[in-house]
Design a protein around this nucleic acid. Sequence first.
DNA 1: AATGAATGAGAATTCATTCAT
DNA 2: AATGAATGAATTCTCATTCAT
Lengths: 225, 225, 225, 225
Amino acid sequence: MSLGAASSTGRRTTTARMADRRQQVIEAAAALMARDGFHAVSMQAIAQRTQVSVGSLYQYFEDKDDLLLAVITSVLEVFGKDLPAAMDGIADPVRRLAAGFDAYCRALDRHRDAAVLAYRESRTLPRQGRRLVQQLEIDTTRPLVDAIADGQATGILDPEVPGSLIAFDMVVLAQAWALKHWHFAALVDLDGYVATQLAVVLRSMVVPRRRSAYPDLLRRAARVS
Amino acid sequence: MSLGAASSTGRRTTTARMADRRQQVIEAAAALMARDGFHAVSMQAIAQRTQVSVGSLYQYFEDKDDLLLAVITSVLEVFGKDLPAAMDGIADPVRRLAAGFDAYCRALDRHRDAAVLAYRESRTLPRQGRRLVQQLEIDTTRPLVDAIADGQATGILDPEVPGSLIAFDMVVLAQAWALKHWHFAALVDLDGYVATQLAVVLRSMVVPRRRSAYPDLLRRAARVS
Amino acid sequence: MSLGAASSTGRRTTTARMADRRQQVIEAAAALMARDGFHAVSMQAIAQRTQVSVGSLYQYFEDKDDLLLAVITSVLEVFGKDLPAAMDGIADPVRRLAAGFDAYCRALDRHRDAAVLAYRESRTLPRQGRRLVQQLEIDTTRPLVDAIADGQATGILDPEVPGSLIAFDMVVLAQAWALKHWHFAALVDLDGYVATQLAVVLRSMVVPRRRSAYPDLLRRAARVS
Amino acid sequence: MSLGAASSTGRRTTTARMADRRQQVIEAAAALMARDGFHAVSMQAIAQRTQVSVGSLYQYFEDKDDLLLAVITSVLEVFGKDLPAAMDGIADPVRRLAAGFDAYCRALDRHRDAAVLAYRESRTLPRQGRRLVQQLEIDTTRPLVDAIADGQATGILDPEVPGSLIAFDMVVLAQAWALKHWHFAALVDLDGYVATQLAVVLRSMVVPRRRSAYPDLLRRAARVS
DNA sequence: AATGAATGAGAATTCATTCAT
DNA sequence: AATGAATGAATTCTCATTCAT
């Protein structure tokens, strides 16, 4: 569970060693909280797991909420990073969109517990933290929104379609793979899931005369039980 | 926040008066927990709000988890009840599906906080309770699955489409109205949301030569900013 | 665990049915408390076990302490009753003493848990109740004290021996079979225990020239590991 | 009520200061529980008495049961320590036995309340703790058993006498001074008690031709009312 | 007499946070 | 910077007892 750079908290992080430890704490906390939930994990448990004293925890983080915020943003950053990386360099907007959705789903699948944690516990954060997380989620959607806009500009996608809404639908459906895994996993595997959901979304957007260009994306690739 | 029928937990509830009180407690707890989250609400607080002694709380519910389960199932039951009620008697499978989705979204909109509570805190429940909630959610999906199957049998919907998966997508998207309200509400109003999402889903399912029968459902009705 | 008449509390006990129920409650309470200890047994648990309402419990007993007193006296009465019954009619003071000790040990063995309860929890009783229990224990010793006095008067037992003290020793040693059963039971069986302890006590009392009359009592009868 | 060495429980107790405080807590708890009984003493009360926060109590002890175990073992250790100390260096087995019994009775007399507590509440302990206490009691008996065996080897004591059983009888009788103090104290003083009980036990063991060597031990020294 | 729902004081235990070393 | 002992408010849950029906 290698989680990104983090911060978001205006902490000094003077020493490099301190930054290291801080990151370790975030990862340990993420693992514990993903398993047991935020409230069920005590600061002492996190300290113990990280081989750090409780006192030090408060050197790295304002308080427990601040740690949670760091954990969540750390998780979201990982997700957010994979997405543009996967889309970068793909000229065709539809294929770019598909690549983004695919990458996002895979990232979520890899860190399923962390994802559940992030979406579940963001409510626990104080207002400001909650907003920050929401903004991060919106930022993540950005590349998708852009790809749709691009597709509409190119005449591949229906210009009447509300891009930002559909893009967020894609985010929601990707997250659903983690959040409703208990249900979806009984119906399809990850590949099938990605293909199916992609087909649903694209069918509603690609204009009829351009459909022939994406036979692979518009037809369900996988069996669904 | 008038929440439906009682129990779901195998409780005694001998007196009618007791059942009444029990229901009051569920509603008060739902309100408080929806606002502050399960862990932030103490049994004391619930007792106080309901004008009931703490001891009585434990006469009605095994423990706090049991109360949470009662709250969540109570919430879900309301949602689950609106859905078939709205679909009942509509012959056309597509219109039936639309009516169901519409009703579900509206129920969720009405009890937005309770919905967030239910989906957020179901993780807090012990295994068995969690399963119960999941089953309840699957049961809710049933009428939608049936409508899709009906549509496929009638030749209106693409027979290759995986009905159970798409039906659950609809549930997920309906829930997203509550869970991601902070984002969607900035883009559309409820009517617009329902229309748009319905269009997305139906476009990917209705076979081309039957599309003309549902011009209202397949075109976005509302403005999206 | 048929426990004796009881009362000791100045309760009315009007109906015969009431007296019956009362006795049932005492027995159920004795069983539960013997197993789990006084504090670990709730009034509701006793009520449930006896198929009686909690309210009725308070019709039969002042409060929980009063119930405990009833339980303990009930237990002790059973013990106390067996003892004189066994001694009655035996002319020889030494053999009478032996019969009494034997009967007492056997009664204790039969109700070992109840015995432990009685001796352990009598401390829990309020002053007055404690005194009552102590008096009951002293009364029990009476026949033994008398037998010793008789033996001394007859010239069989050493006149210098402090009878009341030795008699109480016998009570203590009999109780020890129940209280230290975890240890003694690993060393001897009940018969061996009775024989051995009897030999110890009698050897220190029977005057030398009368010893030949009790070869069976003065020699250890049983094997001790 | 200065009670001996610490732990017996596998606790960390890093600091010396911590060990100190821990010991203080044990002593305060012993005093309170001896007076009011285990269940009647709250952790709050113990904390208050020791000038320690409730939280700290849980730093020193797993839970209330663990504290009770510490109290009881602490008590028993004191008793167990006096006994061999008094016997050490006495060559004559009978006199050694007498010295041990004497020391044990005196230790019990000094900490009578603690003794009652230990024997009464050991039932409250969970299985493992109870076993530990029993083992401790058996260990205590050891020097007595050895002395008897020695006496038998030397031909002073009747070789047929079951040593381990008699030794435990002595323990029981010593404890009876504390447990049945309400009765015995009315009959004799401590010196008288020790002398009398010793005489009872030794008379049943010392072989006739060696009796002349212990006139002081075989004759009751004290008046008994 | 009998019932059992209602009560609320009190108990054990946890845990975020601080601070002396 | 780091430590981890100390703190005590807060929380969940129990249970003896009462009282309206």
